[in-house]
Structures are given as structure tokens and as C-alpha cells.
């Protein structure tokens, strides 16, 4: 029982990070109908920023907010430089474009920093444990869950209560109708990219605290997990993205703790297979977003 609770907390910790990434992907999918495979590059950029700021002698407490801001700005810049040109293009073109960005950013880091991974110190508290009701948890997991919840609450507050959030949801449902109401498409898309970038920034902080390294391919795995989580939840559904992320985290932890020793390395492989099966039976994910095709 104790073990199960620990695993659940561990899973929620992982899942929280995935949820933040997936939510960012879902927000952009909503307004542009684009699956942003370049989303992971925000984490790569964050990783190098963290590395750079460490070199400059900053501390994690300052680096964390800086990284979040940098990720948000990077997201907007990428939109301005690349995605702006393929708005409304066929799905194939947009998918390929986001992959192109993914590769270009990766190559830029190889060119101007290094092809090798750079290490930086992890915060010293992340392996501490804390006892709650007689069960010991990793402080890190608890912190991730707490801040993820906080971020999600803030995000959903923005989406539900601010004019920007309401307009964004309106645009996600019917872009042209939103424009007819006076919603400015540039502003809403830029805003969506900023929001998505900030969410990726928060996820990046936790991801980097755990990994403690920066490399050109640092964003690959988180991007893939985020995309999968968003798809599990049903692309375009914001709540579904969060649900998908948490599910993915829990399943991973459960698999890791139950797989025999030799197979733990195959966790990701098994998770992908499970997800592939899910698509076979429910291609639209858990929550299907209605999108009528007019004939």
C-alpha cells in the first residue's frame, strides 16, 4: 500500500511535467491545427539557457523564472520566423515544417555550442525525502506536483476568466467566427505560442533539475512524450492533454516498478507500443473534439 502511494506520487510528478508540455501542444493545435514537433526545442533552449546562466554564476532560484521567460519568448520568435508562413497550409506541410524547425534549432546548437552534452549542477535538495503521514516521498516529486498544480490552475484561470483566454478558446473552436467577432488572429496566435512556451518553460525547469544536462537533443524525449500525451487525451482538448500527461506518467512509473530487471530499459518502448494500441482502438484519444467535416 505504502509502495503504491509512493508510486502514484512519483507518477504524478512525472505526469505533471508531461501534462504541462502536452497542454502547450494542445493550445497550439487548437488555434492552428498544427502538431508542434518543434515544441521540444523550447526545452533544449531552456537547457542551454540554464547551463549558460550557471556559468554566469546564477542560482537555481533565479534561473527558474529566467528559463520560463526565455522559453516563452523563444516560442513567440519561432512562430514569427517560421510558423507564420504556413498558417492554413495542408497538414503535411505543417507537420514537416515543425520537424524542419526541430532539426534547424538542434543544428544551431551543434554549431554554436557543442554536439556534446554539457552538465550543470542539480539542486541539492531534489533527492531529499520528506515524511508525510508516515510515508516518505521525494521532495522533488512533491514540489513538481505542487508547482504543476499551481501552473495548471493559473493557466485554466487565464483560459476561463481573461478575455485573452476566452478569445483563444473561441478561436480554437472556430477561427473565422472569432475573427468576425473582432479577435485579432496575429495576436491570438502569438499569445497561444507565448502561453505554450511559458508552460514548456515550467516543464523545462523540472525536467532540467532532474537531468542536469544540456544537449542538442535534450528536447527530443520530452517533446515526444508531450505529443503522445496530447494525442492520448484527444488532440485539441486542453483537459484531455492534462489527463493524457498524468496517465502517461503513471503508466511509466507502474511499468518501471513492475518490469523485471533486464527489461526496465524497454519502458519507453513498451509505453509507445501501448499507445500505438490505444490509437488502433481509439484513434481520436480519450476525449474527442468535435470537428465536423462539411460535405
Amino acid at each position: 500500500m505504502t509502495e503504491l502511494i509512493q508510486q502514484i506520487v512519483d507518477g504524478l510528478g512525472r505526469g505533471g511535467i508531461y501534462a504541462l508540455i502536452a497542454l502547450g501542444i494542445a493550445v497550439i493545435f487548437g488555434v492552428m491545427h498544427l502538431v508542434n514537433f518543434a515544441h521540444g526545442e523550447l526545452i533544449t533552449v531552456s537547457a542551454y539557457s540554464a547551463y549558460g546562466l550557471f556559468q554566469a554564476g546564477w542560482d537555481w532560484w533565479l534561473i527558474a523564472p529566467a528559463v520560463i521567460l526565455i522559453a516563452g519568448m523563444t516560442s513567440v520568435v519561432i512562430e514569427f520566423l517560421a510558423f507564420r508562413w504556413v498558417r492554413g497550409a495542408p497538414d503535411f506541410t505543417m507537420l514537416m515544417t515543425s520537424f524542419g524547425i526541430h532539426f534547424v534549432v538542434q543544428a544551431l546548437f551543434v554549431m554554436y555550442v557543442s554536439a556534446n552534452f554539457r552538465q550543470f549542477p542539480r539542486p541539492d535538495w531534489i533527492f531529499n525525502t520528506v515524511k508525510i503521514a508516515g510515508i516518505s516521498f521525494e521532495v522533488f516529486d512533491v514540489a513538481v506536483i505542487f508547482f504543476t498544480l499551481l501552473t495548471l490552475i493559473a493557466t485554466f484561470w487565464i483560459l476561463q476568466k481573461t478575455m485573452f483566454g476566452i478569445s483563444l478558446r473561441a478561436a480554437a473552436e472556430d477561427f473565422d467566427a472569432a475573427r468576425l467577432m473582432g479577435v485579432r488572429s496575429d495576436r491570438i496566435i502569438r499569445g497561444a505560442f507565448a502561453l505554450s512556451g511559458l508552460l514548456a518553460g515550467v516543464a523545462a525547469v523540472f525536467w532540467l533539475m532532474r537531468s542536469g544536462q544540456a544537449g542538442p537533443t535534450a528536447g527530443l524525449t520530452p517533446m515526444l512524450k508531450g505529443v503522445l500525451a496530447a494525442l492520448i487525451g484527444g488532440l485539441g482538448s486542453l483537459g484531455g492533454a492534462v489527463l493524457g500527461g498524468v496517465t502517461l506518467g503513471l503508466v511509466e512509473v507502474m511499468l518501471i516498478s513492475r518490469l523485471p530487471e533486464g527489461l526496465v530499459g524497454l519502458t519507453d518502448g513498451i509505453v509507445f507500443l501501448l499507445i500505438a494500441f490505444l490509437f488502433v482502438f481509439r484513434p481520436q484519444g480519450f476525449i474527442s473534439v468535435r470537428r465536423a467535416e462539411r460535405v
Binding site: F92, T93, M96, F99, G100, F103, V104, Q106
Partner: peptide, 20 residues
């Protein structure tokens, strides 16, 4: 070094944007 990767990525991106 890395120029080759940029060349590949930029070719993919450039073609998608200008000549899909």
C-alpha cells in the same frame, strides 16, 4: 561543424515554406 545539419534542416524548412 554543424553546417551540414543546418543545410539539411533549412532545406526541409525552406521547401515546406516556399515550395512544399
Amino acid at each position: 561543424s554543424g553546417l551540414t545539419d543546418i543545410f539539411l534542416g533549412a532545406s526541409m524548412l525552406g521547401f515546406m515554406i516556399f515550395k512544399p
